[in-house]
Design a protein around this nucleic acid. Structure first.
Lengths: 342, 342
DNA sequence: CTTAGCACTCGATCAATTTGAGTGCTAATA
DNA sequence: TATTAGCACTCAAATTGATCGAGTGCTAAG
């Protein structure tokens, strides 16, 4: 276990390193953080902390740098202590409300906002849970072998997809089908699915096969935990010294560019509401060993909203967490309006 | 005017520079391209070409590097000479067809494909021209003050947008409206708009104001030349030596990340069908002075499809042009199927 | 237990030096 | 007259070496 003073030294190292980005030495600490103690004393403590796996030296005769373990301790401490602080940003948050245009608009705004405020990369995602409720469905014949599938969920999420059909279905047939399904508006997809399946069996016997494929497509869209993700601008990454190295930049970039990896990452935090931090190797992606992800999610009735900030391990956790808290709070204040019905 | 030999020297410089990325000297040319002539002879020609503005030296006592003017000549020559070559890639193109899922699917595939084949950055865009035809419209009440606007155009482009409404319109009212508009399916937006406006005036007197706003939104979506853009992965940029410098990379990145700049750029070529090349300063964006854009567009009835590749000035134009030709041809082969009706 | 002092390590920085590819010019050559 | 070989010169890039400074570990004194 750490002594009080060791903890103090450790947190100071992390703090100073987050500030400066350079390995921190005993003299700096003695001068700036622990003015009562001499450099030599601190040196001894640091040596012990290194043995315990909290610090490391990039090379002999360099200052110390925090390990993931140290960040972890730091973040946990910060997470405990927060609630006190509550600084501004109101003006920007109002902005978010103003630009709201359905779920997509809100999430785009949110990710942009997070990016702006944090100076890292903001992401915003909504995962529709199994109990997503149908608001309206529609089928539109595009040509002899393609039908446009249109699904609106309560809350305003819209999915559309072109599905191939081996048989040519008339627009009337499709409309009839849509009309029937729409009587179930407000019900969960599970129920709708059963009704739909029965209809297909009974009334559309000869088309059953082709419809089954469309049903599968619908399932993919609605039954699984489908996540829609928005990533803010990556431009800030250029300003972060940790990513000046083109190699590291590249690694992170390849992750951020494709949604799949990110979505998986977000799922990490999806078990529990509230704020979670994933530091360095704690996530499975080797490309992200120099990064940290701060996630904050909150689930309302049919969907779970996750906001996150991705940055270097050495990020300003306090600020990011506070920003995240704010934006999320603002975001979940609103969907309540939509809950009346559709 | 250039002599035959000067042209030969010049094209060789451009070709070699595209290959190697390093300034090319007289000896290299003498050994590899113009084996009949000695380095000294070529040196004289090069000096002349420099005077004429086709070549330049990055510094005294370095080899020569092509200017934009030289690239221009090179590309024009290539554009003239092509048609002859016709190498493979069939297997990948079939792949494109297979993954077709409406316009968006096709364009996503196309931009990915261009990116893969060219090793630069592929983009694909569809601009709907004024004469876009309506296939289906729908309005869905989301809550007391928001309506989801849904427009499907012939060809399968789908637009959806939440618009705010100062008055609460019932789903029945909305449905009635949609039904009326849908009788005009297959007509151009211009006609639909008139009908819609009349309806609003006559039947919806007290809601007229709120509807006008929605109409504006629709106009924005449908009347202007709305462009949907897909950009391929930027990952290839990391492999291009010209962009190893983080500064240049950053400049290009900021352009590619936001659609607006790119869309403007694409419009450059939108005047004429066929292949166009924009080299370096020829485009207005100072951030792109080290880049070239090869565009290829083709308009069918209601929309114009543009494919492009963005890469360094020193790109393999021959290959890119041939790739572009292929993918575009493949893409426009299909929409014909959709022209029957909706 | 704390601290001052000292020897030592190692990255970073800077100047001097070398190397090599390339040029321009001139004189010899076909 | 057009071409080429030869030579002196230039300049970026790579190499080397010296120096600096921040930091450590260890030891001995307070």
């Amino acid at each position: 276990m750490l002594t009080e003073r060791q903890l103090e030294v450790l947190l100071s190292v992390v703090y100073e390193f987050i500030e400066s980005g350079e390995h921190v030495g005993s003299r700096t600490l003695s001068k700036r953080y622990l003015t009562g103690r001499s450099a030599a004393t601190i040196r001894n403590e640091m040596a012990d902390l290194e043995d315990m796996g909290y610090l490391m030296q990039p090379h002999t005769s360099a200052g110390r740098v925090p390990t993931t373990r140290a960040y972890r301790l730091f973040v946990d401490t910060v997470l405990q202590r927060r609630r006190a602080k509550d600084q501004g940003n109101r003006e920007l948050l109002d902005n978010l409300k103003a630009h709201r245009n359905g779920v997509e608009g809100a999430l785009t705004s949110a990710s942009d906002l997070l990016t702006q405020l944090s100076h890292y990369v903001g992401v915003a995602a909504v995962t529709q849970l199994r109990q997503a409720r149908l608001s309206k469905i529609d089928f539109i014949r595009v040509d002899t072998s393609n039908v446009l599938l249109l699904v609106v969920l309560e809350g305003g999420i819209v999915h559309h997809k072109i599905v191939g059909m081996p048989y040519d279905l008339s627009q009337d047939t499709l409309q009839d089908l849509a009309r029937r399904i729409n009587t179930l508006a407000g019900h969960e997809w599970g129920e709708v699915r059963i009704m739909l399946q029965n209809y297909i069996m009974q009334e559309l016997g000869r088309y059953a096969d082709s419809c089954r494929k469309a049903l599968d497509d619908l399932d993919k869209l609605l039954a699984g935990e489908h996540t829609t993700l928005f990533t803010g601008s990556l431009a800030n990454l250029f300003n972060i010294p940790d990513f000046q190295d083109i190699g590291r930049f590249r690694a992170l970039f390849s992750i951020l560019e494709q949604e799949d990896g990110l979505v998986d990452l977000l799922k990490k935090c999806n078990t529990t509401d509230g704020i979670g931090v994933i530091i360095g190797e704690e996530n499975d992606l080797p490309e992200m060993e120099n990064c940290a992800v701060v996630l904050s999610s909150s689930s309302s009735e049919g969907q779970r909203t996750t906001l996150g900030v991705i940055g270097p391990k050495r990020m300003n956790y306090e600020k990011v967490i506070s920003v995240l808290d704010k934006v999320l709070q603002d975001l979940i204040d609103c969907p309540g309006e939509n809950e009346g019905d559709g």
